[in-house]
Write a protein that binds this DNA or RNA. Structure first.
Length: 539
RNA sequence: GGGCCUGUAGCUCAGUUGGUUAGAGCAGAGCGCUCAUAACGCUUUGGUCGCAGGUUCGAGUCCUGCCGGGCCUACCA
C-alpha cells in the first residue's frame, strides 16, 4: 500500500470561484485522490482557504463585516460548494488557523537561525484616511508617461508601463480616493532566496518528469536578470499572522504580520496538523522548507494546467463572465460538470467551454453511452427475469473475449490515471462504457431469449455485473452516479476489478436489484440557449 | 521588449527518441438492431498537419523566418 498526500492550489477566500478555477486545481486533485483511494492506497487529501491579504480586508470592509467574520463566512461558503462538487477533502482548512500561525512562526524562526532572513528598510505608502498602508495597485494617479488619469501604482493600464506608486502624479487611494498619502519608511523581513538558488536549482533540475509548464517558469525566475530576488515576507497590517521567531517575540517587528505569500503555502502543511495533530511527512514550499534545515518531505510531483476559456473569451471573475461554482450547481448536478470539465481538462494547452460542446458531450457520453446502457440492461432484465440477477446459463466465448477486452482496457485506464493524464483516462473510461453496448449488440439477449432463456440469463447477469464494475471505475469522475448505480445493484462491494473475470461474478444469481431512475437527463437546445445568455456576463 | 508554450479533419483533441497509406470522439452519410433515455452496433465521407524556406534517403515530428493564440516576466539576460 502506498501513501499519498495530495493538495491543490488553495483558493483565495475572496468570493466564489468559477469553473476555470475548479478544473485548474481542486477537481483534478480530487480525481487523483479518489482514484488512489479506490485502489486501496492511503490518501490524505487536503485543501484550505487562503485568507490573508489586502483584498480580503477590503472585501470585508465593503460587506461591512469584521475581517475574521467575513473569512469565516466565506470559508463556509467555499466548503459548501466543495461539498456540492463532491470534492473529497479529508480536511478543508484555513490559512488563518492557529496551527498555521504556529507553523509559520516556527518556519520564520528556523530561517532566521539559518541566516536566511534579513531586515530591509523600505518605503511604503500610508493613507491617513484609510488608516492603513496601501499596496501599489491600490494607489491610482496620473501616469507620468502617457498622462492616463487612472494608472495604478504598479502599472499603467493604458500604456502598460511599469510604475512605482511614487511615480504617479496626483496619487490617491483607490479605496477612499484620499490624497493624503505619506511615504513612510518601515522595516520588513526579507527571505534571502538568492542564497538558496543553487539548492533550489538542483532540486528543480532533478524533476525531469514535471510538466514543462511547471519547470520552465521556475527556471526562468532562477536565471533571469540578477537571478532569484529576495522577497519581503512581512507587511504592516492587522489581519494576518503576527511576526514571531517561533514562540518568541521578534524585536522591532511588533504590530507586523507575515505577508500572505509566505504563510499561505505553509498552510499546506498546517492543515494536515489541523487534521492530524502530529508530525507528518508532507510537502510544501521549497525555499522555506529547504531553508529550515529540517527534514520536511518535499513535493514529488506538481501537475499544472493551462486555462479554460469560456465561449470565445476568458472566464472573468471581475466581469462575472462564465459559469461560477454556485450557479453551476443550481442548474445541473455536480457529475455533469465533473465529467465535462475532467474530460476536457486544459492539460496540454488552453481548452474552451462552449455550451454546444457541453451539451453534446453530456448527452452523448453520459446519457446515451452510460445512462442508456444501464437503462436497457436493467429494464430488459426486469421485464424478462424480474428484478433480481437471473440464474442459469454459462459465460461462453463471447463473454470470454469481452472480459479480455475489458481487462486490457482497465489496465490502460489505470495507466492514464497513474500518470494523471486526465483526458486520456476519461476517453478510456468512455470506451469501457461503450464496450457494454457493443457486447449487448453482438450477443443480442433479446433474440437469444426466445430460443434459449438460460444463455440470455447469463448474458444479462454479465451485463448487470458490468454496471457494478462501471460504478467502481467511474467513481473518481462521477461519484454521485456511481453511488446510484451501486445502490441500484443493491451492492456495497467497491473493490477494484483487479481480476476482471472475478469482478464479473460479483453479483450472483438471485440477488435483488432495482431499475434506477433515469441517470442523466439530456440537455435540451432551449436550456442551452437560456444558459448561454444567462452567463454571458456580469452575474 | 525578452523567455516559454501553442496553431493537426466542420467541432474538441491524440500523435512516442523524425520512418511504411496522419488517428479518436462528436457532427455528416449509409446499413443493421429493436432490449433501451428515437437510444445502441457496424461501415463510411472529411486533413497539401498555420504559411514559406531548409536539413535528411525520409518531417506533423528537427532548424530558420513570418502570421495567429496563450502564459510568465520586465528598462536586462
Amino acid at each position: 500500500m502506498q501513501r499519498h498526500l495530495i493538495t491543490s492550489a488553495i483558493p483565495y477566500i475572496n468570493g466564489v470561484k468559477h469553473l476555470g478555477n475548479l478544473i485548474g486545481s481542486q477537481l483534478p486533485a480530487d480525481l487523483y485522490a479518489r482514484y488512489q483511494r479506490a485502489r486501496g492506497n492511503e490518501v490524505l487529501f487536503l485543501c484550505a482557504t487562503d485568507e490573508h491579504g489586502t483584498p480580503a480586508e477590503l472585501a470585508a470592509a465593503k460587506a461591512n463585516q469584521d475581517i475574521s467574520e467575513y473569512c469565516e463566512e466565506m470559508h463556509a461558503v467555499q466548503a459548501q460548494l466543495a461539498d456540492g462538487f463532491r470534492l473529497s477533502f479529508d480536511h478543508f482548512g484555513r490559512s488563518s488557523s492557529q496551527e498555521n500561525h504556529k507553523l509559520t512562526q516556527h518556519f520564520a524562526g528556523q530561517l532566521e537561525a539559518a541566516g536566511l532572513i534579513k531586515e530591509v528598510i523600505e518605503t511604503q505608502i500610508y493613507s491617513h484616511v484609510d488608516r492603513r498602508y496601501l499596496p501599489d495597485r491600490y494607489i491610482e494617479g496620473t501616469c507620468p508617461a502617457c498622462g492616463f488619469e487612472d494608472a495604478r501604482g504598479d502599472q499603467c493600464d493604458n500604456c502598460t508601463k511599469q510604475l512605482d506608486p511614487t511615480d504617479l502624479i496626483n496619487p490617491r487611494s483607490s479605496i477612499s480616493g484620499a490624497t493624503e498619502l505619506e511615504q513612510r519608511e518601515t522595516k520588513h523581513l526579507y527571505l534571502c532566496q538568492s542564497n538558496m538558488r543553487d539548492n533550489l536549482e538542483n532540486w528543480i533540475e532533478s524533476k525531469t518528469d514535471w510538466p514543462v509548464l511547471t519547470t520552465s517558469i521556475a527556471k526562468k525566475w532562477l536565471h533571469d536578470g540578477d537571478g532569484l530576488q529576495d522577497r519581503g515576507i512581512t507587511r504592516d497590517l492587522d489581519w494576518g499572522i503576527p511576526v514571531k521567531k517561533g514562540n518568541s517575540p521578534w524585536p522591532g517587528m511588533e504590530d507586523k504580520v507575515f505577508y500572505v505569500w509566505f504563510d499561505a503555502p505553509i498552510e499546506y502543511i498546517a492543515c494536515a496538523q489541523e487534521w492530524v495533530n502530529a508530525g507528518i511527512h508532507t510537502l510544501s514550499f521549497p525555499a522555506t522548507i529547504l531553508g529550515s534545515g529540517e527534514p520536511w518531505k518535499l513535493v514529488d510531483y506538481i501537475k499544472s494546467f493551462n486555462y479554460l476559456n469560456y465561449d470565445g473569451g476568458q472566464f472573468s471573475t471581475s466581469r462575472g463572465r462564465g459559469v461560477f461554482m454556485d450557479d453551476a450547481l443550481k442548474i445541473l448536478p455536480a457529475d455533469y460538470w465533473r465529467w465535462w470539465l475532467l474530460s476536457h481538462a486544459p492539460e496540454s494547452s488552453d481548452s474552451e467551454f462552449t455550451w454546444d460542446n457541453f451539451q453534446s458531450s453530456i448527452n452523448k457520453d453520459l446519457a446515451d453511452v452510460l445512462g442508456n446502457f444501464v437503462s436497457r440492461v436493467t429494464k430488459f432484465c426486469r421485464s424478462k427475469f424480474g428484478e433480481e440477477i437471473p440464474s442459469g446459463g454459462d459465460y461462453g466465448q463471447a463473454e470470454g473475449s469481452l472480459i479480455d477486452n475489458l481487462a486490457s482496457q482497465v489496465k490502460c485506464y489505470e495507466k492514464y490515471m497513474e500518470k494523471i493524464e486526465i483526458r486520456k483516462a476519461a476517453s478510456e473510461l468512455r470506451a469501457i462504457w461503450a464496450l457494454g453496448n457493443e457486447y449487448l449488440q453482438s450477443s443480442a439477449p433479446w433474440s437469444v431469449y426466445k430460443e434459449d432463456e438460460g444463455t440470455a440469463a447469463a448474458q444479462i447477469r454479465l451485463a448487470l455485473n458490468l454496471i457494478r464494475i462501471y460504478a467502481v471505475l467511474s467513481q473518481p469522475f462521477i461519484p454521485t452516479t456511481s453511488e446510484k448505480l451501486m445502490l441500484a445493484m443493491d451492492c456495497d462491494d467497491w473493490s477494484w476489478p483487479e481480476n476482471v473475470l472475478e469482478a464479473t461474478n460479483t453479483l450472483i444469481a438471485g440477488a435483488k436489484f432495482t431499475v434506477p431512475e433515469m441517470l442523466f437527463q439530456k440537455i435540451s437546445d432551449e436550456e442551452c440557449e437560456n444558459w448561454r445568455s444567462q452567463f454571458s456576463g456580469t452575474r
